[in-house]
Amino acid sequence: MNHDETDAAGSGGLVELAAGRLRLLLAPQVGGAIAALHEQRGGERLDWLRPASAQDVARGDPFAMGSFPLLPWCNRIRDSRARFAGRDIAIAATHPARPSGKHALHGLGWLRPWQVAEAGPAHARLTLAFEADDQWPWAFEASQRFELDPAGLRCTLALTNRDTAPMPAGIGHHPYFAHRPGTRLRSATAAMWRSDAEVMPVALEPTAEVARLREGVLLSELDLDNNFAGWQREARIEWPDVARTLVLAAEAPLDFFVLYCPRGGGHFCAEPVSQCTDAINLAGRHGPEEIGGAVLAPGETLAGSWTLRSA
């Protein structure tokens, strides 16, 4: 990997944190995203998350970042439309040319610049204020607190309803990891949401993939873009070629897990989230253990933390 091309450290507007051998680069203007998280081992660099390039940061491409926040909902809303408590949600489709692109994707936070509220050598807090509009008719505030130590990263998300009416809410993060030769993933869940051709959930089942992930599986054997319920809030990633194991862990309400692992792809996503895809439209047919999600009263906050640590 040519780190002159893939390292965004020289780009303007970034916040850099350091602890021991770890370095974290944040891109507040690119959806409050993580641009890079890596460690120095001697003269070598090992990326924990897929690194963004300086060019990716300059053009503000959130899809090229190492991870970005998901809020005020996680992943997709079917047909970009929903109705809640008498208010209509009508989101502009993110990628209408794709089969799944007509479904509103990943929330609103990743598409807006965040502000740096505080920053120190090993911690930072980013904030976002959103005014209600024709797409999302609730005002809200959000924050991300990043805390780096020599063993890893802790990120705490918070979403507060600043409107006068209850608001549906979901939070999460969207980390991209390198799919290196021999990469293995182990994570315990109860069931997987099977998806249709447009990557929307249609049935929750204890599939064969659930059993394989519980025991640990080579990612090269999977081809998934699915939500998992009953997550035990931990995923173990093993990269045998570089002798590194990372543990992704989360706290309530991040009780759901998304695995995006395209066959033959150079990266995969293991996402801690508080709701499954399209939870707002599925709420009338499924319970909270199956779809998650929350309803925030005016002034109420939904918050959760996830960590990434070396094992």
Rank of each mutant, 00 (worst) to 15 (best):
G170N: 06
V258P: 00
A124W: 10
L14E: 02
A52V: 09
L71K: 13
R233C: 05
E238F: 11
P69T: 12
L246P: 00
P240W: 13
A249Y: 00
R285H: 08
G10E: 05
E198R: 15
G284R: 12
F268S: 03
D163V: 06
G86V: 04
A208M: 10
E271M: 04
L296R: 00
R83N: 00
P253E: 01
A203V: 08
W239Q: 13
R41E: 08
V210H: 02
A151I: 13
G216Q: 10
Q115K: 12
F84A: 01
K102W: 10
P69N: 15
P96N: 08
H103N: 09
W306T: 02
N2A: 09
W231V: 01
P28H: 12
P72Q: 13
H123E: 09
P288W: 03
D133Q: 06
A19P: 02
L128K: 03
F177V: 02
A64G: 11
S67K: 12
L37F: 12
T156N: 12
D278M: 00
A169L: 04
F68Y: 15
F68K: 04
H123L: 05
D56Y: 01
P150S: 13
N75D: 13
A122S: 14
D61E: 15
A294D: 02
G265K: 06
L126R: 10
T127G: 06
S11I: 05
D4F: 14
E198Y: 10
Q144D: 04
S310E: 15
N161L: 06
L282Y: 01
R186A: 08
T245K: 04
A142Y: 14
E215P: 03
G287Q: 09
F146T: 05
A178N: 04
P113Y: 04
R212F: 07
A203D: 10
G299Q: 07
A93R: 06
Q29K: 14
V30F: 07
